[in-house]
């Protein structure tokens, strides 16, 4: 598998606090990479740097082999890196299709240059199509997002990544604050997205979920990378223990990757 994203020696400090202390990692095309670790391990900071929300203090980010500097989430988006935030960043009062197309509406030109007319019909159809691809059924594209269930809202947020034709989707705690059934639904969504040949980075506290959807896991601790492991035959309990002990033992594959 080709390398999609390459992070080299990322440092990030907030004043005297060192959040990331030289983390390097690779994301390969088509994988679902989970980033795990205790609170304060540096997961969120790392994600913010990749998504363009914050700049690294030092270190380099390569996308498809080219160094990139994301000044804003919009910058990252333009390069095909989409982030789905924990709070989903939706506008609840607005309609399903409007939310899916937020900031990237389909329009037609008018005689006034900056006044572009919304192509509501086209957007509505495309929105239904995206949701269909994720196997999610929302009958009314014009229903306000506020009327949807938690799982459906996740689907709307994830559809946005499809709309952006993102090649890399970053998901921040996608199953936090969801019930059992909705969690299953969201995990299914992630698999569907994966089937669409989208590469995914996921942050989660829920080991069950991580083991269920991820193909590879990176474990951070105190701003450093502890190691990496594959999820084959890995149980959630085992993963928890590795994080708690701060030791991956035999499962650590980091040395092998280095040799490659």
């Amino acid at each position: 598998m080709a390398t999609l994203l390459d992070l080299k020696s990322i440092h990030k400090s907030y004043g005297a606090v060192q959040a990331l202390n030289g983390v390097s990692l690779t994301v390969r095309e088509g994988e679902v990479l989970a980033i795990c670790g205790d609170n304060g391990a540096g997961k969120s900071t790392l994600i913010k740097i990749v998504s363009g929300a914050e700049a690294a203090t030092s270190g380099q980010v390569f996308l498809r082999g080219k160094e990139v500097h994301f000044a804003s989430p919009a910058d990252a988006l333009a390069c095909g890196v989409a982030t789905i935030y924990q709070d989903l960043a939706l506008a609840p009062r607005l309609q399903v299709y409007q939310n899916i197309f937020m900031g990237a509406e389909l329009t037609r030109a008018t005689f006034i240059p900056f006044l572009r007319i919304l192509d509501k019909k086209k957007m509505s159809q495309a929105a239904a199509d995206y949701l269909g691809r994720l196997n999610i059924e929302i009958k009314d594209m014009k229903a306000p997002v506020a009327s949807l269930s938690g799982g459906q809202r996740q689907a709307v947020a994830i559809s946005r990544a499809l709309r952006w034709q993102a090649s890399l989707v970053i998901m921040d705690e996608p199953t936090a604050a969801l019930g059992v059934r909705e969690t299953a639904q969201v995990l299914d969504l992630i698999r569907q997205l994966h089937d669409q040949a989208v590469t995914i980075i996921i942050i989660s506290h829920n080991m069950e979920d991580v083991v269920a959807v991820a193909t590879r896991i990176v474990i951070l601790k105190n701003g450093l990378k502890l190691g990496e492991c594959l999820t084959e035959n890995l149980t959630a309990a085992e993963l928890s223990r590795m994080i708690a002990l701060g030791d991956l033992g035999d499962r650590n594959i980091i040395r092998q990757t280095a040799v490659e």
């Binding site: 989430p73 960043a89 939706l90 937020m102």
Partner: peptide, 11 residues
């Protein structure tokens, strides 16, 4: 509606 979401969406 949601200043932060809109900004993250590139608006």
């Amino acid at each position: 509606e949601n200043d932060e979401a809109a900004r993250l969406g590139g608006i």
